[in-house]
């Protein structure tokens, strides 16, 4: 009986561990995008993430956007070939989404970037300097985290400002 109970305990511990950490699985992006290199080439954030100043969302680059520069092979990176493959099949790059709001939370990039003048860094970290696509959000987006900042900056902390 005792070993069984010990096993039970270990099992529970493992389970809790998994639930705690395992729920945030790490997605692999389809293209191993190098932000740093692009940045160094003088590509602006808005070139690929075209909407963050005008819309609620920032947008992920479409295949066509990539092909504007990568029409002719610029590098020997195998991922370049991948993009061309997507282009050929008429598909969009299936970017994986990292920053996901809960269902009833509405976040506006425009409100934060264009109106409040926040920098991308505040939420996305030094993504411009990263050489690999991030696998998890730079910040853990909890309500507390949002609200702390709102309090600090005297922004609106009304529930309805985000929960619509």
């Amino acid at each position: 009986m005792k070993p069984f109970l010990i096993g039970l305990a270990i099992g529970t511990a493992i389970l809790l561990f998994f639930i705690n950490f395992g729920s945030s699985f790490r997605p692999e992006q389809p293209i191993s995008f190098n932000h740093k290199k692009h940045h160094e080439q003088g590509v602006e954030c808005a070139t690929c993430h075209s909407y963050f100043k005008e819309q609620t969302f920032s947008g992920m680059p479409k295949t066509a956007a990539c092909m504007e520069c990568h029409k002719d092979s610029l590098t020997k990176h195998p991922d370049e070939e991948k993009i061309k493959q997507f282009q050929k099949n008429g598909e969009e790059i299936p970017w994986k989404r990292l920053y996901q709001q809960p269902d009833d939370v509405f976040f506006s990039h425009r409100r934060h970037v264009a109106l409040a003048g926040m920098e991308c860094k505040s939420c996305h970290g030094d993504i411009g300097q990263s050489e690999k696509p991030p696998t998890k959000p730079w910040v853990k987006m909890t309500m507390k985290w949002c609200m702390d900042c709102h309090t600090k900056t005297k922004a609106n902390n009304d529930c309805l400002a985000c929960h619509v």
Partner: peptide
């Protein structure tokens, strides 16, 4: 004993995990 322990751990994971999963409301697809 070892087998028993394994059984215990298995039972815990299976039951607990199953229960945990079951209690999670299926996330609303956005």
């Amino acid at each position: 004993d070892f087998l028993k322990m394994g059984g215990g751990a298995g039972a815990a994971i299976a039951l607990g995990g199953g229960f945990w999963k079951w209690t999670q409301f299926p996330p609303v697809e956005r």
